[in-house]
Design a binder for these strands. Structure first.
Lengths: 223, 223, 223, 223
DNA sequence: TATGAATGAGGATTCATTCAT
DNA sequence: AATGAATGAATCCTCATTCAT
């Protein structure tokens, strides 16, 4: 993700050119994310990845060790990039709805910029069993926990209600995150939908609720 | 020889027992849904499916033709079953929120009862490219369209608002359906969560909105 | 061959209709000859043959025993039919060149009428190893021997030369028969070539020779 | 073909020995020609070919791509070798009968040296349907066209006959080529028959004709 | 650092053939 | 006399992975 999705040919160098390990590794991971994201874990072949990266297969194995390790590495890199993007969009201390808005905007912006990375995390990693599913689950739980906090905080801001029972709030956070994920997929598949629109829709939906919307009081983005 | 326990796994019959084609075909589809749902399309092997069905591989090919056809058949069967379940839960003339509630309850009930079928539809079919993704997409669009109608209808019921612009409602329906899908996965993965609880959470979230919840006015299921 | 090559569907009866063994067996052989002739021994499947014959596979096995036996039976039937056709065209006792002409005409007529049977004998049986190649070889040797006799007889007729050395005549007969076989294939593949034309060409070539042809003395068919 | 047909074990190297791609590819093609020639396209298994070549199956696929491609490659290589051998035997400016004699001698010599290659071209490729039959057909038509020219040229040499009608000469060329093919098969199957004898027989048969032979004027090879 | 050469293992698919009725 | 149900045994092909240089 770091950098855009690799295009048809390795960005950095012609095949055979020597270069520092870190850079080569990044090229390979770029190729791997693109391939895994488009084809899926099983359908992606190490041959295709190596070719897209512009290196020979043995080099991929030398650096990344195995297909499984390579996929795990992709998941971790993309998860970190996503969390980083969202975290970077938020200003701690602001009102909860501002933070949620900012986080969603950053989220939709990032998933639109890195569709292959998002596919790896959301579609591929979660459907390929145990070593991998757990890796995304960890990241996802982090995010759900953060959203849970935001909702609780919002309730406190609204009328000092000290704590909504955690058992009621967590499922709401699940629903919100799930809706965000679905909208990210939908936005990537629907030409012309911007990150801002997706975020607005979701804020409307989750913050104001349908009922409020119907009463002519839609939530609207700040500024 | 009826006493021998030949079968390793087969649910419906011991290996080798003759039976009419329709029944055998159902057994095979059951095995296929279970296998595809757990392992994914690529990782599932026809060997495993045949063994689980309690038949030899050639019979699977004789009846279902190819792995691709078999997967498609699974998708279609499970999609039809899901739509049927939801449709059966709804009473057409009722108020929109009643219909949504009933539909969600039926949805979460069905996905809880058929986790493998749900996995096939939600996780596997959508991540394995063109022949398959389109098949679920069709069903999903139907559902999104139906939810879109419900939301518009609700708005009309609420205060005669003639029509919310379609371009605003459709994304909300996307979000709602996406949230439902995520909650179905979450409910299946979280022991102790009932379909009723999941449906209530989602009604709360979508119908009343978080804001209302914070003001102490949670939506609550009928009866 | 007896009867024309079977068309798309079994000529004699609808599937399932009971009928005497001999007739069923003929239907099956017709289907087998058509299938073997078009697809080749290995590529022809018992399934296809049974379907074309309008019967179930077990019945084919009941009557014809195995694929190998079925193919052998086809070879024998078609070989007999071909020899019969040629023999029937010849009037023993006539001058050798008349006999050769009549035999060739019968041969080209038959191969044009039964292209599948001819394919079985010429193309398929000879390329599929020992049980089969020998069966055609026997028939072919018969024919070569007959042609050898004709040539020797012609020489005697021409100038009383009692016997050309057998070692010189046999290869000539081989060449003549080989040329006839090639012309049969060529005639079947070239629209508009009649059996009569093929036979004339070959008589010209073998009887008169190219040299004579060049001297303006082509051999011409009787009457 | 290059070199003699491989015997029981790979001619060039022991299994496992590393070697440049071109050489390995040649070994594989040798093995493939031998196997296809003896067993036929369908009956030959990639396993057998790989084993005979002394390599693993994946390597065959890596280099030659598929069974179909491998067979096509064999056909092309053997066709080129055969044409090359015949062309190499002929001296362009010579009288037509000299050229035919030289060409036939080269042809029978080559088919005797490479029986498997000849089998691939004559027996196997022509009986296995469209991708393959066409490839030999092209080569065969070239040869027939050349022979057609030779016959026409001979007529001109003989008595200035401007041109025999093409429609009469082409079938004669077909017959001549067909006879040559059959004699090649016969010579390979009959111990003790030399290429020279086969060529002499065919020259006798085609050039002088049976009639001349009977009048005690057999054609005889030069020198 | 980097690669051309090579393979063990497994998966989809087909086919001749038999059994029970 | 005839068939629907069923399978053991290949066969083509792919892929992750390693070796020798």
């Amino acid at each position: 993700m770091q950098g855009t999705d690799a295009g048809k040919k390795a960005a950095g160098g012609r095949r055979g050119k020597r270069m520092p390990r870190a850079e080569r590794e990044r090229q390979m991971m770029d190729a791997a994310v693109a391939t895994f994201g488009r084809r899926g874990y099983r359908a992606a072949s190490m041959d295709e990845i190596a070719e897209l990266a512009g290196v020979s297969k043995p080099l991929v194995y030398l650096y990344l060790n195995s297909k499984e390790d390579l996929f795990s590495a992709c998941i971790r890199r993309e998860a970190a990039a996503l969390v980083e993007a969202v975290r970077g969009g938020i200003t701690p201390g602001e009102p909860a709805d501002q933070q949620l808005w900012a986080g969603l905007l950053a989220f939709f912006t990032h998933t639109a910029e890195c569709p292959d990375g998002w596919s790896v995390l959301h579609s591929q990693a979660r459907t390929h069993g145990e070593p991998f599913a757990r890796e995304v689950a960890v990241m996802r739980e982090e995010i759900v926990a953060f959203v849970t906090l935001l909702i609780a905080e919002a309730a406190r801001e609204a009328h000092g209600n000290p704590t909504l029972p955690e058992g009621e709030v967590a499922p709401l956070a699940e629903a919100l995150v799930g809706a965000a994920e679905a909208l990210a997929v939908w936005a990537n598949a629907t030409p012309g939908v911007t990150a801002r629109e997706a975020a607005t829709t979701l804020m409307n939906f989750s913050w104001a609720g349908l009922a409020n919307l119907m009463q002519g009081k839609p939530w609207s983005p700040p500024k």
